[in-house]
Design a protein around this nucleic acid. Structure first.
Lengths: 208, 208
DNA sequence: GGCCTTATTGAGCAACTGTCAATAGCAACG
DNA sequence: CGTTGCTATTGACAGTTGCTCAATAAGGCC
């Protein structure tokens, strides 16, 4: 276990950026197998074939490294879920959610490590995860065909709603047991749920 | 800083249960000021005026102690939110949510520490928080006047939905900025949101 | 008073985060 | 080719923390 891929040259000098990328990449790989707080920097350094000190040279503190890993992982895992160009917003949302559920199904450990682990740790990690989610919100809104009304208050609520809904969905899918509940049914619910949330938000702001 | 309240008798022998309660109580107090993962056992022991070893005598591992604290904190913070016996389910739910939002407003740090911190750490902690949430679900359902249809699948989905909604609400309220969004509006949205979720869940299972 | 249970402690181990001064690879320049 | 300078890289060290274990002592019971 823990065999370094390249063990020939004892001391290979890399450019700063390359090394940084390599380390984050290793962190991301390891993150898929266990939660981040169980990720000792020793192990990352060993995997990279460098000393721990070098890791601290690039990331001044553990939290900084974790944050970088979480940000990369979030981008890799969450963003590229495919959306088929369906006809209606409903179909597009459904395909987006379906892709997401399948992603979680396929990579449960990694996803759990990311979502659950990101909450606990350092402030920087929490912020990194928050940034990932914030970046997701516009994408979901775009898929839903949402257009800003220009009303500042309304937009604020909508963003808040989508954000909360995303987190709720993450939790729901993680808590979901495929054996007792059909995936299609879950996806149906989530799709309806998302749209109904937006409608409710719209109703609330126009009513006031 | 960190002054023990009782420092007279150097070695006071307490009953096991009392000591346990005292330690959890201290943990809960400290939890209100900072996230749980920043809570060193050293500090807890110091605050209690005992040695670290004794703490390990009562809680075999750090995770066990944290789990006990989270469970106690969850029970103290989440459960006793008051519900006025309103006429309609809508009013009761609204008052429950309103109480919850005010609770978070009043005790933001502690609540953040609980929710965010509980996600990360040990498996036991996650499970403890899951237990707290699971215990909450029936209560919310009761307030909403929900009655089981006897359909196993439907009930499973409803529980899942409420759980996810709760987590989403936690996130929403925590991300909520009182300056840019009126509380009444937020509570309105959350109330409508909750009911609409239940309706959507009902529609999805009956449709299949 | 003597005994037995167990609450309590101090010393110590192992793992981990973070620091610092010293070393060495690589490029530029004379 | 030799020197110099930058910085990637390292090894040794210090402080903290989770956890173990054998030893101690406080309090109840006969």
């Amino acid at each position: 276990m823990g065999i370094t891929s390249e063990a020939v040259t004892p001391r290979l000098r890399m450019s700063g950026d390359d090394r940084r990328r390599q380390l984050v990449e290793i962190g991301w790989t390891l993150l898929q197998r266990r939660p981040i707080h169980e990720l000792a920097l020793d192990e990352v350094a060993l995997e990279a074939g460098i000393s721990r000190s070098l890791l601290f040279h690039y990331f001044p503190t553990k939290g900084d490294f974790y944050a970088a890993v979480v940000e990369a992982a979030g981008a890799k895992m969450l963003k590229p879920v495919g959306v088929k160009d369906g006809d209606t917003p409903h179909e597009r949302i459904r395909s987006l959610i379906d892709g997401f559920v399948r992603l979680v199904e396929r990579n449960r450990v990694g996803y759990t490590s990311l979502v659950r682990g990101a909450g606990g740790g350092d402030v920087r990690v929490v912020e990194a995860m928050a940034r990932v989610r914030d970046a997701l919100v516009p994408r979901w809104l775009a898929v839903a065909g949402f257009e800003s009304t220009g009303d500042e208050c309304h937009d604020a609520l909508v963003r808040l709603v989508v954000r909360g809904w995303l987190v709720g969905m993450e939790e729901t899918v993680l808590a979901w047991n495929p054996d007792t509940l059909d995936r299609a049914l879950l996806v149906d619910y989530l799709t309806e749920s998302f749209q109904s949330q937006l409608q409710v938000a719209a109703r609330c702001t126009t009513a006031s």
